[in-house]
Lab assay of single mutants.
Amino acid sequence: KEEVSSHTSPETGIWVTLGSEVFDVTEFVDLHPGGPSKLMLAAGGPLEPFWALYAVHNQSHVRELLAQYKIGEL
Rank of each mutant, 00 (worst) to 15 (best):
P33M: 02
F50W: 15
F28N: 00
S60F: 11
E73K: 12
E11C: 11
P33A: 01
S20F: 12
A67F: 09
H7D: 04
R63M: 11
T26E: 02
E21H: 13
H57L: 01
K38N: 14
S37W: 10
L31I: 13
L41S: 10
V25D: 01
A42M: 05
L18S: 13
Q59I: 02
G13I: 05
A52E: 15
T17P: 02
A52I: 05
E73L: 08
A52H: 12
D24G: 00
M40N: 02
Y54D: 10
A55S: 15
G44H: 08
P10F: 09
V4C: 09
L39D: 02
F23N: 00
T17G: 05
G19V: 05
L31N: 07
K38Q: 09
D30Q: 07
E21D: 11
H61M: 05
I14G: 02
A67Y: 13
L65A: 10
S9A: 11
S20N: 15
W15P: 03
P33W: 01
I71L: 11
L65T: 14
S5T: 14
W51M: 04
V16C: 14
E3S: 15
V25Y: 00
A43E: 04
K1T: 08
T12F: 08
D24V: 02
A42D: 01
L74S: 09
S6T: 15
E48S: 00
L65W: 08
W15D: 04
L65I: 14
S5Y: 14
L66D: 04
T26N: 02
Q59H: 09
T17E: 10
H7Y: 09
H32T: 05
D30P: 15
G44D: 05
A67S: 12
F50G: 05
K38E: 02
H57N: 02
M40K: 09
L18M: 13
P10L: 12
G44C: 07
E27H: 07
L74N: 08
G19P: 04
G72W: 08
H32D: 10
W15H: 11
E64A: 13
A52S: 14
G72A: 14
A52Y: 04
E48H: 00
Y69T: 05
G34C: 01
Q68D: 09
G44W: 10
G19Q: 07
S20R: 12
E64R: 11
L31C: 03
G72R: 09
A42V: 05
A67N: 15
T8G: 11
M40Y: 04
T17D: 00
T8H: 12
E48Y: 03
F28M: 03
P36Q: 02
A52W: 02
E73C: 09
L18N: 11
N58W: 11
E73V: 09
W15S: 07
Q68L: 10
L53H: 09
A55Y: 01
H32E: 06
L18E: 11
V25T: 03
V56R: 05
S37P: 08
V16E: 06
M40I: 06
L66V: 07
L41C: 07
H57C: 02
P33S: 06
I14M: 10
G34H: 05
V22K: 05
L66K: 01
E21S: 13
T17S: 14
E3Y: 11
H7F: 08
S20M: 14
G19L: 05
A67I: 01
A42E: 00
P10T: 12
P49Q: 09
Y69F: 13
V56A: 07
P33Q: 03
K38I: 02
P33Y: 00
T12V: 11
A52R: 13
L65H: 10
Q59S: 13
Y69R: 06
H7Q: 03
L41H: 07
S6Q: 15
